[in-house]
Structures are given as structure tokens and as C-alpha cells.
Amino acid sequence: MTPPGSQMQPTVGTPRLHQSAARCRRHRRRILEVSQKVDALHVAPAFSCMEIVDTIMNVAMDAPFGGQDAFILSKGHGAMAQYVVLEEAGILDPASVDRISQSGSSVGGHPDRGVPGVIASTGSLGHGLPIALGIARGNRERGVTGRVFVVMSDGELMEGSVWEALLLGPSLGISEVTIVIDHNGSISRGEIVNVQPNLLPVAPKLAAFGWDTREVDGHDPMALAAALASQTASAPLAIVAATVKGKGVSYMEHQPIWAYRSPSAAEFAQAMSELADPDVPRA
């Protein structure tokens, strides 16, 4: 476990980046472990943004929490991804992660302001980006420098409040905000391409609204880190990260049913085996 404050500088190519793959396997195993202790968990939505959240918090930010940079998980249903990173950074108590959403627990299925390491209460989609613009604008007023990172889902882009904020950020000259879209292509009731095909392709729309836009493989920490480091002072940065819902566990990938479900014992064993580190003999 990494103690708080020991994070390395967010430079592409640092050891923290090279350890990303192993770290994300560990994060996913931890999420699965927790899934066995609670009734139901948003497993697949967390797996979808695992590399995104880890790369932002552990590589791009000056610290996962408490530094000058800020992080908002606007797709609040990916909470487990944020919790396990905070837990490994020593910010969130493992005992509370173990009891997520259970009776008496103060840590629940969506991030809540006040939970250690969480600055914004999300869960209702379309709230993170406007708040991030406010933080960036407030920092400027206060003479504080710091980037504000927001992870959003692609389905979240259907919310009108998102487009108000997408329009507004560049208009206000706010370049300190970086959004990463977890673009797994699916929403609760199916595929975006079937439900709201005009949302696609995403990147040109963001570019048309004045965002500096990148498209990367959302499960490639190197690509994510490079894109996150490419921010300029001229415009806010939007990274469209292609992802797979349930990434890392074969039977979860692309399967909507795993959006909110805990694996059975047998499914758990298989998933843990698929996520084992290469140098560890598989069970």
C-alpha cells in the first residue's frame, strides 16, 4: 500500500505509470472481493473506467486527494473504481470499503462529499462538469493553480446540463478542466448506437464546442497518461476513452446484466483467475 503523500510527480513514464497494469488488476480483484461481501455492486461500470480513474489519480494528479488538483467522478456509479484507488492511497479506510452500502456504513454506492477523498456527491448524472468549472473558476479567483479532472460516462452526455457546461467552459476561457469520457457505448437499456445514435461520434461534437479533443484506448494507461499530459492553456481538454464495460473479466465484458450485480462464488473464482498477475500461478 502506498502511504499518502508519497505519490510521484505526474510525469509520463514514471514507475507509477509502469505499474499501472498490475495496479489495475489489483484494483479489479479488490472490487470483486468486496462484491462477495455485499448484495450487489456496480462492478462492470467500475471496471470500465478503472484505468481512467487510476491514471488520473495516480499518474496525472499531484495527489489522489488533498493536493492542488481535484477529481470528480461524475459517473457516480463507477464509485468502486475511485474507492479502491483512495483505499490504496491510504485515504479511505479498508473497513468502510468492505462494508460498502451495508447497514451502518457511511460509504455507499455513489460518491458522497464527506467520504474521505471525495469532494463531490454524484450519482445523478450531469452534475460533475458544471461543478468542476466552478472549482476551476474559483481557484483562479483565489490564485490557486490546479487542474480539475472529471470522469463522465458516454451515456451521461445525453443530459442537457452536460451541454450547458460543455458550451460554457471554453466560453469562459477555463482551460484547467479536463474531462475523460468513459466511452463504453452502453446505457442501462442497451447500446447507445441503438438508443441515441446521433450522440455518435462523440469527439467531433466536443471539438465543435471548443474543447481540445483526444481519442484514446481507455484501457491503455500509457495512452491515457500521454493524453492527460497534453493539456494546454488555450482550451479545456476532453479525452474520449474507448472502453469495455466489465473490462478484465471475460463473461462480464459487454454484458449489460453485470452493470449492477455481484458474481456467484464460481463466477468470482473464474474472475479472480482471469485477473491474476502473470507471474502468479493461476488457481
Binding site: L133, I135, R137, L167, L168
Partner: peptide, 20 residues
């Protein structure tokens, strides 16, 4: 914020988070 009331409130929340 122009004609954007949702952004108005969201931004105000963020501004308040910075101590304003």
C-alpha cells in the same frame, strides 16, 4: 453563464467548494 441555469447552480457549487 448565459441562458444556462443548471450550469449556474453547478458552477456556484464548485465556486463554494473553493471557499467563495
Amino acid at each position: 453563464v448565459g441562458v444556462s441555469e443548471q450550469a449556474m447552480i453547478g458552477m456556484a457549487a464548485g465556486l463554494a467548494m473553493t471557499g467563495l
